[in-house]
Amino acid sequence: MNSLILRTATPLLSGLMLLFSIYVLLRGHNEPGGGFIGGLIGASAFAIYAIAEGLAAARRAIVVPPITIAGTGLLLAALSGVASILFGDAFLTGQWWFPSFAPDMKYASTVVLFDVGVYLVVVGAIAGIAFALEERE
């Protein structure tokens, strides 16, 4: 797309969106947000980047093929559930770690890992779909 404004603004905009998506992902446990929303924002960041800068640039920016990201996320989510089996609970029971130096930290848990998995699946799958559709034959 040959819009100068868009091409100038996009790198900054995409970067901000990506950052924001991670923020939304992590705040999701206590305030509105979470893996699904974060993932959608992240996927939009790549979609916009691809529209403005071209598909090749976007593929370089995302480094690995998007569908690989989705697969990794699915694996991560599944593995986060396996952890609880090791502790003797049912599959996917949340496990929490409260380190002595930071007893109030609420991020060291398999639940957050699971949410990260969700995020990666959504980013990967939807960015993958968008890239595939933007590709001209």
Partner: peptide, 22 residues
């Protein structure tokens, strides 16, 4: 340990559903 009930349902209480969905 989560204040956003919707998200806790998604990633903890009903995580198996979510796993299927992703």
């Amino acid at each position: 340990f989560g204040r956003n009930i919707v998200n806790v349902i998604l990633v903890d209480f009903r995580a198996l559903d979510t796993l299927g969905e992703i």
